[in-house]
Each structure stands twice: as structure tokens, then as C-alpha cells.
Simulated assay, not measured.
Amino acid sequence: MSSLNVIQVDQMNHALRNQNRFYTETNDSHWNELVQANLATKHPGWEEDMSYFRVTAEGKEAFKNKGSDAATSEQFVKNNRLNYIKGVFTCHQVLSG
């Protein structure tokens, strides 16, 4: 694995802020890449096709040392979240009349 992608940075950050847990579909490609690279572990979830993912010590180090690319990625994620929220709000306004 060459570097963390934007989604992985965002989701690892989310996990680390939430008792190092991220609950999503078992076949999530972003988390499974992290598991293959020993940057995360996978644990059974409550639902059949869901799992908890946890960032490993090695993953925390990679996240911490993510460098300028990840800093740019974090800004990209923040901007996209804002654009998503604006889009939902605009859509809601249009639908509400």
C-alpha cells in the first residue's frame, strides 16, 4: 500500500475519535486494504454483513505520519462534506417549494 487515500484518512480519523471503532460493511474496500496492509483489524459486527474495524498501532503511526498529501486530503474531505451539506440543503429547498 503506497499511501492512505482520502476516504481512508477520513474514516481512520473518525475511528480514532470514536474509541478506535468504525462500523461498516464487511466488504468495504477501503478498510479491507488497511487490514491487508496491517494498518487495521476486522472484527464481527452485530449484523451479518457488517464489521467493526480498528486502527492498529502501525495504522496510527501511518495516520500520524501521513504527510502533506494527507493534509491536502483532509482539506479535500472537509470541502466535500461542506459541498454535500450545501447540496442536500439546496435539494431540500427545491423539494420543499
Results as ranks from 00 to 15, higher is better:
Arg54Phe: 06
Asn83Leu: 15
Phe76Ile: 12
Val94Gln: 13
Tyr23Gln: 05
Asn13Gln: 11
Trp46Thr: 09
Lys86Glu: 12
Phe22Trp: 11
Asn65Cys: 04
Ala15Ser: 07
Ala15Met: 09
Lys42Phe: 07
Gln8Glu: 11
Asp69Trp: 12
Tyr52Ser: 05
Phe76Tyr: 14
Thr26Tyr: 08
Phe89Cys: 13
Met1Ala: 10
Glu74Arg: 03
Lys78Arg: 15
Glu48Leu: 09
Ala40Ile: 03
Arg17Phe: 10
Gly87Thr: 05
Pro44Asp: 09
Gln11Thr: 12
Asp49Gln: 10
Glu58His: 04
Ser29Met: 14
Glu25Thr: 15
Glu33Arg: 07
Met50Arg: 15
Gly97His: 14
Asn13Met: 12
Phe76Arg: 05
Val35Asp: 11
Gly97Trp: 10
Gln19Pro: 01
Leu34Pro: 00
Thr72Glu: 12
Lys86Ile: 13
His14Trp: 15
Ala57His: 13
His14Asn: 15
Glu33Pro: 00
Thr56Ala: 04
Lys42Glu: 10
Ser51Thr: 04
Ile7Ala: 06
Thr24Asn: 11
Leu95Trp: 11
Leu95Ser: 09
Asn80Val: 05
Leu82Glu: 13
Pro44Ser: 04
Thr26Lys: 15
Ala62Asn: 00
Leu16Asp: 06
Val9Ala: 08
Arg21Asp: 15
His92Pro: 02
Asn18Cys: 06
Thr72Cys: 09
Phe53Cys: 03
Val94Arg: 13
Ser29Phe: 10
Val77Glu: 04
Glu74Leu: 10
Met1Phe: 13
Lys60Trp: 07
Val6Gln: 13
Trp31Gln: 01
Ile7Phe: 02
Asp49Ala: 06
Ala15Gln: 04
